[in-house]
């Protein structure tokens, strides 16, 4: 037995860390989307929700730190796993067919970094207010609703959000299925549900998030 390697030392262990951090980030993204859909209820609901999230720093900051750690672990493990595979076939095939590989699985290595860039843009846009001056309500609190709507009325920003969330959908389509396999959750009785689960939540998150810039653009939310 190789004692020097340890759990994280193998690609199997690294992938498990990616799966677990992926689940945590997925749960966040799902709750984030559900919360944001309150934009359809009206400005008061979304602003009240936004202020509520910021009102308890004892919860806000631990969640932010955990998410940041998840992002870091997910990326470091992904890069290490990718590097291991990168060197595994120095001489390429002249002809190679991959009948089983789907588009989502093949583009994980591209959708991941692009989503990271989007998250940075998203934080600069609506958290730090570096893209343009953020709006505030009459009583001095941040006007979440107005910031979202005025942002998405700008076509460039709306397109960035739409493309990033399409890629997020692809990333989740593979990731939400893949995590079961990686964590060893497999049984003939429920294996077909793993793909159905991934499809439902990948579509739900992509459609839910993309609906917001589309609705602003179409003038349904203003």
């Amino acid at each position: 037995m190789d004692k020097s390697l340890g759990f994280y030392g193998s690609s199997v262990g690294k992938k498990m860390w990616m799966a677990v951090t992926g689940i945590i980030m997925f749960l966040f993204i799902f709750v984030h989307m559900i919360g944001n859909l309150q934009i359809y209820i009206g400005p008061e609901a979304l602003n009240r929700y936004g202020h509520f999230l910021h009102s308890i720093p004892e919860i806000l900051w631990p969640v932010r730190i955990i998410l940041l750690l998840c992002v870091l672990v997910h990326i470091v493990a992904a890069v290490q796993v990718w590097l291991q595979s990168y060197g595994a076939r120095p001489v390429k095939y002249k002809i190679k067919k991959d009948p089983a590989v789907d588009y989502a699985a093949r583009t994980m290595v591209w959708s991941g970094p692009i989503i990271l860039l989007f998250i940075i843009f998203h934080l600069l846009h609506l958290t730090f207010g570096s893209v343009y001056q953020l709006h505030y309500t009459a009583n001095g609190q941040i006007d979440v609703f107005r910031n979202v709507v005025s942002g998405f009325q700008h076509p460039g920003i709306a397109i960035i959000y739409i493309v990033a969330n399409l890629l997020l959908g692809f990333h989740l389509y593979h990731g939400l299925w893949s995590l079961f396999q990686t964590l060893g959750v497999s049984h003939p009785r429920f294996n077909h549900w793993r793909r159905i689960f991934a499809i439902i939540f990948a579509y739900a998150i992509a459609i839910g998030n993309i609906s917001i810039p589309v609705s602003v653009w179409a003038g349904w939310v203003h």
Binding site: S85, Y86, G87, R89, A100, Q181
Partner: peptide
């Protein structure tokens, strides 16, 4: 060897 990314190939 490389690392598995569940391509199922």
């Amino acid at each position: 060897f490389g690392a598995c990314t569940n391509y199922t190939e």
